[in-house]
C-alpha cells in the first residue's frame, strides 16, 4: 500500500465534506450576514438521526432522506425562530445567538443520543477500488462524487437559475430585492434549508466511513468556516478551498502525524485571515 496515495484519497473524502459544509455556510452568511456557528450541528444531527434509524432496522432509502430532512428542519428553525426576529441586532450578538444554539443542540443530542460514537452501515458496498497503491471503498467514491457534484450543482443553481439569481440579489442588497417583490424572509429560509440539506447529506455520506457523536458539530463548523474563509466566502472558490483543506490535512497527517493536524490547520486559518485582512486600513477598521 502506498501511504501517499491513501492519504490523498482520504483527503479528497474529507475535502468533499468540507466543501459541502463551506458552501452551506457561505449561502447562509451571504443572505443574512451572520456566520452561523450552529451550522455544523446539522452534520451532527443528520449523522445521529441516520445512525439511530439504521439501528432500528430501517433501510437506507428511508433513513437517509429522514436524516437530511432533520438537518434541514434544524437550520430552518435556527433562521426562523432565532435569527429572523432579531434582524436589527448587531452581528456580534447574532453570532452569540448561533453559538448558544450550537451549545444547546450539543446538550440535547447528548441527552437524546448518548455519548457513544455511532455509525451505520454503508449504502454503497462492494469490493474497494485499488488505485495506485491506495484503497477507495465504494462509499468513499460515492462521498467524493456525490459531495463534489452537489456542491457544484448548488453553485450552478446560484449562478444560472431565477431562484439562485434572487438569492444573490438578497445577499447583495436585501432592501432593493424586497422593493422588487422578492420575499427576503423566504429567500433566507431557502438558503438555510439548502445549507441544512448539504450538512445532512455530508453526514449521511461520511459517517458510515467513520462515526459521529454529539460533539461533532463545532469541529465541523470550524472546518467549514476555514474552507469558506480560504475560498474568500465565494461559493465557487469555496469548493476548491474545501478540497484543498481536506488534502492538506491528509498530507500533514501523512508526513507529520495526526497530532499535528489541528495546530497546522489552525495556523493555516490565522495565516489566511491575516492575509485577507491586509487590505483593511492600517489604523481603522475599514471604510468610513
Amino acid at each position: 500500500m502506498n501511504p501517499l496515495t491513501q492519504s490523498l484519497i482520504s483527503g479528497l473524502m474529507s475535502g468533499a465534506v468540507y466543501a459541502l459544509l463551506a458552501v452551506g455556510l457561505v449561502l447562509a452568511f451571504h443572505t443574512t450576514r451572520v456566520v452561523n456557528l450552529a451550522h455544523g450541528e446539522s452534520f451532527a444531527i443528520g449523522g445521529l438521526v441516520a445512525a439511530t434509524l439504521a439501528d432500528a432496522g430501517l433501510p437506507a432509502y428511508v433513513f437517509a432522506p429522514v436524516a437530511i430532512a432533520a438537518s434541514v428542519l434544524f437550520l430552518l428553525a435556527v433562521e426562523r425562530f432565532l435569527l429572523r426576529p432579531r434582524r436589527s441586532w448587531p452581528i456580534g450578538n447574532l453570532i452569540l445567538v448561533t453559538l448558544a444554539a450550537a451549545f444547546l443542540t450539543r446538550g440535547v443530542l447528548q441527552l437524546a443520543m448518548g455519548v457513544d460514537p455511532l455509525s451505520f452501515p454503508r449504502m454503497f458496498t462492494g469490493a474497494p477500488f485499488r488505485i495506485a497503491g491506495g484503497v477507495l471503498p465504494p462509499q468513499g467514491l460515492a462521498l467524493i462524487v456525490i459531495g463534489v457534484t452537489t456542491a457544484v450543482a448548488v453553485t450552478l443553481f446560484l449562478l444560472f437559475t431565477p431562484l439562485g439569481r434572487k438569492l444573490r440579489a438578497v445577499a447583495e442588497n436585501p432592501d432593493a430585492a424586497e422593493l422588487l417583490g422578492v420575499n427576503v424572509d423566504r429567500a433566507r429560509s431557502l438558503a438555510f434549508g439548502i445549507a441544512g440539506a448539504l450538512g445532512g447529506l455530508s453526514a449521511v455520506l461520511l459517517v458510515p466511513l467513520v462515526s459521529v457523536d454529539y460533539q461533532a458539530g463545532l469541529g465541523m463548523t470550524l472546518r467549514g468556516f476555514i474552507a469558506a474563509a480560504l475560498g474568500g466566502m465565494a461559493p465557487a472558490t469555496v469548493i476548491l478551498a474545501g478540497l484543498g483543506l481536506g488534502l492538506s490535512e491528509a498530507l500533514v497527517t501523512n508526513y507529520a502525524g495526526a497530532l499535528a493536524q489541528d495546530p497546522i490547520v489552525f495556523i493555516a486559518l490565522i495565516a489566511v485571515a491575516v492575509w485577507q485582512s491586509r487590505k483593511i486600513a492600517f489604523g481603522g477598521t475599514g471604510r468610513a
Binding site: P162, R165, K166, R168, A169, E172, N173, D175, A176, A177, L179, L180, G181, V182
Partner: peptide, 20 residues
C-alpha cells in the same frame, strides 16, 4: 439606485419577474 452590482444587467432586470 441600489442596483445589484454583482448581477448582470439582464439578471438585474429579471429579478422582478415573479412578482410582476
Amino acid at each position: 439606485r441600489q442596483i445589484f452590482q454583482g448581477l448582470t444587467v439582464k439578471e438585474n432586470l429579471g429579478i422582478p419577474r415573479s412578482a410582476s
